[in-house]
Simulated assay, not measured.
Amino acid sequence: MPEMPEVEIIRRILEPQIAGKKIETVEILHNQIIAHPDMETFTEILTGQTITNMSRKGKFLTIHFKSGDNLALHLRMTGRLLVMPKDTPVEKHTHLLIYLEGGNQLRYIDVRRFGRFWYLKKDETDDLTGQDKLGLEPLDEKLTSTYLKEKLGKKKKSIKDMLHDQSIIAGIGNIYSDEILYAAGIYPETKCTAMDDEEWDRLAKKIPEIIAWGIDTNEMKPEEYLEGKGKEYRNIPHLRVYGRADQPCLVCQAVIEKISLGGRSSCYCPECQRKKL
C-alpha cells in the first residue's frame, strides 16, 4: 500500500498535469470503486468540472474543482492513478477513465479494487471518507513527544501497532513504521506503557525525519512515474530495515530479524533495537 511519502509524490507529479483542465467525460468500468454517490450521479456531476488543484491528507488525495466541489480518493492496497494520452492502450484492471481537455486521461487502475472515490459537493459535510478522523500529519510541528505520550502512553498495545493508528498520526504504514522504529532504536513489540521519556523524544524526532527522507528518496520525474506505471518507488533499495530479514544490519552487522505483529510482518535489528527485559 502506498504510504504518506508515496501518496505525496503522486500528488506532486499529477497536480501540474491536471490543474486547470476541464473534465470532458467520465467512463466507469467497474462501479465498485465509487463509494459516493451512485455511479450515474457520480458520472453526471463530475463531467464538466474544472480542476483547480490537488491536495493530500494522510493517505487520501483530493481533487478540487472550480465549483467548490471535491473528489476524494484512497488508493488502498493496489490502486494507481496516472495521467496518460488517450490513445494509450487501456490496461487490465483499469476501472475509471476521466477524459481531460487537451487529449489526456486520468486513469485509475487497481488489481484488487479496494480503492474508493467519493464526490463531495461544496456544501456537503465530509463524514464519509474518514478524513475527519485523521490525526496529525507526520511533518506537523505539533507532533511532539508530549503529543505522542498523551495519545499513546496509556495504550497496552505495541508501539508498532499504534504507529498505524491513523487517528493518532496520518499516513504511516508498515514500511515507514519499521524504518522509524529502527532509526529511533525501539523494539517494535515494546508496549506503549513501557516506553520512557527518552524513547518518546527519539520517536518524535525520527517520525518527521524518516517521512521527509521517504519523500525525498521517492521523488521522480513525471516521465519516470508514467514509465513505471505508478508501481515503482525509488527508495525501495535504500530502505534500512523493512524487507531486509536475514540480511546484515547496516549499522552493526547483526542479522535483521522478522516477527509478526497485528497480522503484519515487522523487521528489526536485535542489537540496535534491543528488547526490554
Rank of each mutant, 00 (worst) to 15 (best):
P85S: 15
L136V: 04
Y176I: 00
K229M: 11
S177T: 14
A183E: 12
L97V: 09
S265P: 05
D123C: 07
E257M: 05
F65M: 04
G185V: 01
K205S: 10
E27L: 00
R274F: 07
G153N: 08
E224W: 06
P2Q: 15
P222Y: 02
D196T: 05
L96Q: 01
K149C: 08
L277D: 15
I9H: 03
P85A: 15
I175E: 11
R240M: 14
I180S: 00
G173D: 06
K157E: 06
A19M: 04
G262H: 10
L181D: 02
D69T: 01
A245P: 03
Y187S: 00
K157P: 00
D132L: 05
F60S: 04
D110H: 08
A183G: 03
L81G: 05
Q131T: 12
M84V: 15
G228W: 03
T129V: 04
R113D: 02
T129M: 02
S266T: 15
I63N: 05
Q131P: 02
E223A: 14
K149S: 09
D201F: 09
Y225D: 08
L139T: 14
D165E: 15
E179H: 00
L106D: 03
E44V: 09
E199L: 03
Y268V: 01
Y176T: 00
Q253I: 10
A19C: 04
L81Q: 06
E227I: 04
Y119W: 12
Y268R: 01
K191F: 04
K205C: 05
D178I: 00
L239V: 05
D127V: 14
R80C: 11
R116T: 12
L97A: 05
E44A: 13
T41C: 00
I210H: 01
K151A: 13
M54Q: 02
C269G: 12
R113V: 10
L143P: 00
K66S: 13
A19S: 11
Y99W: 09
R116D: 11
M54L: 05
I207H: 04
W118E: 04
E137T: 03
Q32A: 11
M84T: 13
P248T: 13
E232Q: 10
A35P: 01
L239S: 09
T217H: 15
M162Q: 15
A184E: 00
F117I: 13
D140W: 01
E40W: 03
A194F: 07
M84Q: 14
Y242M: 10
K156F: 10
I168T: 13
K275R: 12
T190F: 02
E198W: 09
L261M: 05
T88K: 13
I23P: 02
A212G: 09
P138N: 12
K57Y: 11
F114A: 12
L134H: 02
E179S: 00
E224P: 01
E198M: 11
L239A: 09
I34C: 02
P85I: 06
M4L: 15
K221H: 13
L106E: 06
K160H: 13
N218Y: 10
L96H: 01
G103A: 14
I10F: 12
E179P: 01
